[in-house]
């Protein structure tokens, strides 16, 4: 009985670690999106250097908004690593 519970906990912990890693795949999307936004911002500053302040400000806001999906993935990963909600569901 005790061994079974240990096994169950081990499976849950291992699967949670895998899940935390998998959740961070969400970082790909914001990375690509922000890179594209920054590239476009550089392009437009090169074309119109006098508007660099406004372009930079708008770009940072856009980056922050685009980042939120990545942040959600990160929060899921952090929950699985430090506040695992599944480990307490195992009852002996």
């Amino acid at each position: 009985m005790e061994n079974n519970e240990l096994m169950a906990r081990a499976i849950v912990l291992g699967a949670s670690a895998l899940g935390a890693g998998t959740a961070m795949i969400a970082g790909i999307g914001p990375g690509i999106g922000e890179g594209y936004a920054v590239g476009k911002a550089c392009e437009s500053i090169g074309r119109q250097p006098e508007s660099s302040g406004a372009v930079t400000r708008t770009m940072f806001i856009g980056c922050a908004v685009a980042e939120s999906t990545g942040i959600y993935g990160l929060l899921v990963a952090l929950l699985l690593m430090f506040a695992n909600p599944f480990i307490n569901k195992i009852s002996g």
């Binding site: 980042e67 942040i71 952090l78």
Partner: peptide
């Protein structure tokens, strides 16, 4: 929700 989670997530990810 998205405003607060963005701020919180950024700071706490830096901490972690």
């Amino acid at each position: 929700v998205s405003m607060s989670l963005r701020h919180f997530g950024n700071v706490v990810s830096g901490m972690v």
